[in-house]
Design a protein around this nucleic acid. Structure first.
Lengths: 206, 206
DNA sequence: GCATAATGTGAACATTGTTCATATTCTTCC
DNA sequence: GGAAGAATATGAACAATGTTCACATTATGC
């Protein structure tokens, strides 16, 4: 082994970045531990010095995704009054994130792959993103991670419909151009109209 | 090779049944092609006489799931007037299905694993289940698979919120007992109240 | 009855996640 | 400065997986 075969820099960070790149460009199927190691120029076994196993590496990537969503929520929610316009704005931003990072978005919610509750960092990042929404709907400081989501029905409902919509969109169930801002906006607006005004409006017997 | 080493019966059906059993009991991770072959008592290569590859086998399982949902929708929708009570009923049934078959439900919507649009049988089964909902909201015969889902905003919104809610539930984001009918019903009712009446009710500036 | 299609077998291959013994480098303390 | 020990790297090995291949057996149709 020659001296230059060794890496000094921040390998852990490099692994995450490489994983994010492969995930974005080629999807979860291509995201093997060995592939990521190859990408960074390191032996497969070296990965285990930084992550417990493949799942832990994926969890780190997913946690990064939750942090991005939390940022997006903070920007849209913080200091805003409880108006429908704010909800509409968050919906747009949320869908834009999913449209720009479909594979990352899918991974974040593949709880059978990444074990949401088993990785503390991941669970924490997820809770935080939900908590931001709860605090807006129910008042700052309302969120308690120990409580069940049922305690926050508005925040839970918003997230449910946004998540379902995002999946429908990135899985191609809605025919549209994911790269067009206007298409994504229109989708968000159409569904949020119904959600905010109430689906009863579409019924005969209300 | 002796004569009795050969299988005569319907191997294809046996493979699907075994796959459904393994999926239900042990999850997608355990659902390997070789495992299913072992379960049926057949060589791994024999599977390729009945399915193009592993993905096609999974797609057949997923298609079965969509047919179950279609049945459930038919039972709840057919001949019913457009009332909120019907929507609430479908929501309960939908969540009950997801609660009883969490792994199957996840697989059905893992479009990166099963390739929703690449398998014709799967796409058709999925379209049918969506079509039943569309026909109820917009009148029998309204559904056209060539149209984008955006043409049917009510059907799309309902499905989005139910799907998001189902995932939240089976992934344990809502603390509850999945086997208790009342728990599932309460979750469905709480969220459908908001969806039907409009989330604006929770806002200050409506 | 026989050609042929359908369906089965086992061996082989590349790839994957993971572990292990071992080698190199970094850090820290004297 | 230099030695001890923690971090971090390596390559070899293992079992398991999806898939293909040459070939054997059974079923079907003329």
């Amino acid at each position: 082994m020659s001296r230059k075969d060794y890496h000094k820099g921040n390998v852990r960070e490099g692994l995450i970045e490489a994983a994010e790149r492969v995930l974005h460009d080629e999807g979860l199927v291509a995201l093997s531990l060995r592939r990521v190691a190859r990408e960074v120029g390191v032996a497969p076994s070296a990965v285990y010095n930084h992550f417990k196993n493949r799942e832990a590496l994926l969890a780190a990537v997913a946690a990064d995704g939750y942090r991005q969503i939390a940022e997006l929520e903070l920007a849209a929610y913080s200091g805003q009054s409880k108006s429908a316009a704010v909800v509409r704005g968050v919906a747009r931003d949320y869908l834009h994130f999913a449209a720009a990072n479909p594979n990352l978005y899918r991974l974040m919610f593949s709880h059978d792959v990444v074990g949401y509750r088993s990785d503390p960092e991941l669970g924490q990042a997820g809770d935080r993103s939900f908590g931001i929404s709860v605090d807006w709907w129910y008042g700052s400081g309302s969120y308690d991670p120990g409580q069940t989501a049922l305690e926050y029905p508005y925040a839970m409902s918003v997230w449910a419909i946004l998540h379902g919509l995002a999946l429908q969109m990135i899985d191609g169930l809605v025919t549209m151009d994911l790269s067009k801002r206007e298409s994504v906006d229109k989708l968000a607006d159409t569904v949020m109209d119904i959600f905010l005004e109430g689906a009863s409006l579409g019924l005969v017997d209300k």
